[in-house]
């Protein structure tokens, strides 16, 4: 199940947010070798302070297994403020109907091996979650910066990204800027590939108890 957490409400979801920051440190510092700020084994950046919307994939026992965050491209966002070099000179992504997804991460210690043939459930949930949020608020696209490994995952998830701009090597990984379609058709394709039958975002305001 996907839970939506506003950055401003992080205090009410302290355990989940903490688990998310730990997973992000494992993924972005340890595995991708990005130059991210990690304190006490938890990765945080200034966009976490910009009140993003987090999508948390939480398992049945109340543990976070993956996450991402969304920011409008009309305000502070990573593509504009951190990775403009991935775009063609003069390109700028800014629209009320385009949001940015960043820090897409799955717990590497727990996620089943993701291959192009076997799709991780958490990946599917998160991607369906993006599309569901997008449909709810009337987005046309979601843009994102991601590494080569994710390109394969997106393709396997039937959620192909169109690349925009020029890929560059950042840290250990080739890094791309890409865009995703927000449409019912996009949701159906991802859901079918991942064997999901119903909406993934929890409508239940009573979230399961956070694991102690």
């Amino acid at each position: 199940m996907i839970y939506l957490v506003n950055g401003a409400d992080a205090g009410q979801y302290r355990q989940w947010m903490d688990e998310m920051h730990v997973i992000r440190a494992k993924v972005f510092r340890d595995r991708l070798g990005w130059d991210v700020e990690v304190e006490d084994d938890r990765e945080r950046d200034r966009f976490d302070a910009a009140n993003p919307l987090y999508l948390l994939s939480v398992d049945g026992r109340g543990r976070v297994q993956g996450s991402l965050r969304l920011l409008p491209t009309t305000g502070p966002n990573m593509l504009r403020d951190v990775f403009p070099s991935l775009l063609e000179p003069g390109d700028m992504v800014e629209s009320a109907t385009i949001w940015e997804s960043s820090r897409f991460s799955l717990d590497p210690d727990r996620a089943a091996e993701v291959t192009s043939r076997k799709l991780n459930r958490v990946t599917t949930e998160l991607l369906c979650g993006i599309v569901e949020v997008g449909l709810m608020v009337g987005l046309s696209f979601v843009v994102s910066v991601f590494d080569a490994r994710m390109v394969r995952i997106f393709r396997a998830a039937q959620c192909p990204a169109d690349m925009i701009g020029t890929p560059r090597k950042i840290g250990k990984a080739m890094t791309y800027a890409g865009l995703f379609d927000i449409s019912e058709a996009a949701w159906n394709a991802i859901a079918a590939a991942g064997g999901i039958g119903d909406r993934v975002i929890s409508r239940d305001s009573d979230a399961p108890a956070q694991a102690a």
């Binding site: 800014e94 629209s95 109907t97 385009i98 696209f141 169109d162 865009l179 379609d181």
Partner: peptide
């Protein structure tokens, strides 16, 4: 020589600007 999604994307950026 781009995907139709990309073409729509650039048109959307232009629309916004």
């Amino acid at each position: 020589g781009v995907g139709h999604r990309t073409a729509r994307f650039y048109l959307e950026l232009a629309r916004h600007k």
